[in-house]
Deep mutational scan, measured.
Amino acid sequence: RELEKFANEFKVRRIKLGYTQTNVGEALAAVHGSEFSQTTICRFENLQLSFKNACKLKAILSKWLEEAE
């Protein structure tokens, strides 16, 4: 439930900031050390990743959002 809420909020905030899914994937290299594909970001936003992978990505995306805003 919390993950679903974060995924929805993330998408809204990403769009408000003017980032595409591809931009986010590339920008994550600075935060995490490796890029993520547009497909991975899309699957996260649509809750199509495994729970374990989504939880890992949530932590990375939270950190990125803090820096982007």
Rank of each mutant, 00 (worst) to 15 (best):
Lys52Arg: 13
Lys52Asn: 13
Ile41Gln: 03
Lys63Thr: 14
Val31Thr: 13
Val31Met: 11
Leu47Cys: 15
Thr39Ser: 12
Leu65Gly: 03
Glu2His: 00
Ile41Thr: 01
Val12Pro: 03
Lys56Met: 10
Thr40Trp: 05
Leu49Phe: 11
Thr39His: 12
Arg1Leu: 09
Thr39Trp: 08
Lys5Met: 10
Glu45Thr: 02
Val24His: 07
Phe10Arg: 03
Thr20Pro: 00
Arg1Ser: 10
Arg1Asn: 08
Tyr19Glu: 01
Ala7Lys: 00
Asn23Tyr: 13
Glu9Met: 12
Leu57Gln: 05
Leu57Tyr: 11
Ala59Thr: 14
Glu26Cys: 07
Phe36Ile: 15
Lys5Phe: 07
Cys55Arg: 09
Glu4Lys: 12
Lys52Pro: 12
Glu4Tyr: 05
Asn23Ala: 15
Glu9Pro: 01
Lys56Arg: 13
Ala54Met: 15
Ala29Ile: 07
Glu26Gln: 06
Asn23Glu: 15
Val24Lys: 02
Arg14Pro: 03
Phe51Arg: 11
Ile60Ser: 06
Ala27Asn: 03
Leu3Trp: 04
Leu65Ile: 14
Lys56Ile: 09
Ala59Gln: 13
Val24Pro: 02
Glu2Ile: 04
Ser62Ala: 13
Trp64Pro: 05
Glu4Phe: 09
Ala30Cys: 12
Leu3Ser: 02
Ala68Phe: 03
Lys63Pro: 09
Lys5Tyr: 10
Lys16Val: 02
Gly18Trp: 02
Ile15Asp: 01
Gln21Trp: 05
Glu2Gly: 08
Ala27Cys: 09
Phe6Ile: 00
Lys11Leu: 00
Ala7Ser: 08
Lys63Val: 11
Thr20Gln: 01
Ile15Gln: 14
Leu57Ile: 14
Glu35Cys: 11
Gly18Tyr: 02
Tyr19His: 08
Phe44Lys: 00
Lys56Gly: 09
Val12Tyr: 09
Leu3Thr: 02
Cys42Tyr: 10
Cys55Leu: 15
Thr22Pro: 06
Lys58Thr: 07
Lys5Arg: 12
Leu57Arg: 05
Ser37Ala: 05
Asn8Lys: 15
Val12Asp: 11
Glu26His: 07
Thr20Leu: 04
Phe51Tyr: 14
Asn53Gly: 12
Trp64Thr: 04
Val31Gln: 13
Ser50Lys: 11
Glu26Gly: 03
Lys58Tyr: 06
Lys56Gln: 12
Arg13Ile: 00
Glu35Ser: 13
Lys5Glu: 13
Lys52Trp: 08
Glu4Gly: 02
Lys56Pro: 05
Leu57Ser: 06
Cys55Asp: 15
Asn8Arg: 15
Gly33Cys: 03
Glu4Arg: 10
Thr22Gly: 13
Phe36Thr: 06
Gln48Ser: 08
Gly18His: 03
Leu57Gly: 06
Leu49Arg: 02
Ala68Asn: 10
Ala30Lys: 13
Gly33His: 06
Ser62Arg: 08
Val24Trp: 09
Tyr19Leu: 12
Arg43Ile: 01
Leu3Glu: 04
Ala68Glu: 13
Phe36Met: 09
Leu28Arg: 06
Gly33Pro: 08
Lys56Ser: 10
Asn53Cys: 13
Ile41Cys: 07
Asn46Pro: 01
Glu67Leu: 05
Ala59Phe: 09
Thr22Tyr: 08
Asn53Asp: 15
Lys56Glu: 12
Ala68Pro: 00
Leu65Val: 08
Cys55Pro: 03
Glu4Ser: 11
Glu35Lys: 10
Ile41Met: 07
Glu9Leu: 10
Leu3Gly: 06
Ile15Thr: 12
Gly33Phe: 01
Gln48Val: 06
Arg43Gly: 08
Ser37Arg: 03
Tyr19Ser: 04
Phe6His: 04
Asn23Met: 15
Phe36Gly: 00
Ala7His: 00
Gln21Cys: 11
Thr39Asn: 14
Ala29Asp: 04
Lys63Leu: 09
Thr20Asn: 08
Glu35Thr: 10
Val31Glu: 13
Cys42Met: 15
Arg43Ser: 08
Asn23Val: 10
Leu17Gln: 02
Ser62Phe: 13
Asn8Phe: 10
Gln48Met: 07
Lys11Asp: 00
Ser50Tyr: 02
Glu35Gln: 13
Phe10Asp: 04
Arg14Leu: 04
Ile60Gly: 07
Thr39Met: 11
Leu49Glu: 05
Leu28Pro: 02
Asn23Ile: 06
Asn23His: 13
Phe36Trp: 10
Phe36His: 03
Phe36Lys: 03
Lys16Ala: 12
Arg13Met: 06
Cys42Val: 09
Phe10Ile: 00
Lys56His: 09
Gln48Cys: 05
Gly25His: 06
Leu28Phe: 05
Arg13Gly: 04
Ala59Pro: 15
Phe51Ile: 12
Lys5Ser: 09
Arg14Gly: 02
Ala54Thr: 01
Asn53Ser: 14
Glu69His: 02
Gln21Val: 09
Phe10Val: 05
Ala27Ile: 11
Glu66Phe: 10
Leu49Lys: 00
Arg1Pro: 11
Cys42Asp: 15
Ala59Asn: 14
Lys52Ser: 13
Lys58Leu: 02
Asn23Pro: 00
Leu3Lys: 04
Arg13Ser: 01
Ser34Asp: 13
Phe51Gly: 08
Glu45Phe: 01
Ala68Met: 13
Ser34Cys: 07
Phe44Trp: 01
Arg43Phe: 09
Ser37Tyr: 06
Glu26Leu: 04
Cys42Phe: 08
Lys56Trp: 06
Lys58His: 08
Lys56Cys: 07
Phe51Pro: 11
Thr22Lys: 15
Lys58Cys: 01
Thr22Met: 14
Leu61Gln: 03
Val12Trp: 06
Asn23Leu: 07
Thr40Ile: 05
Cys42Glu: 15
Leu47Ala: 10
Thr39Ala: 13
Ile15Ser: 09
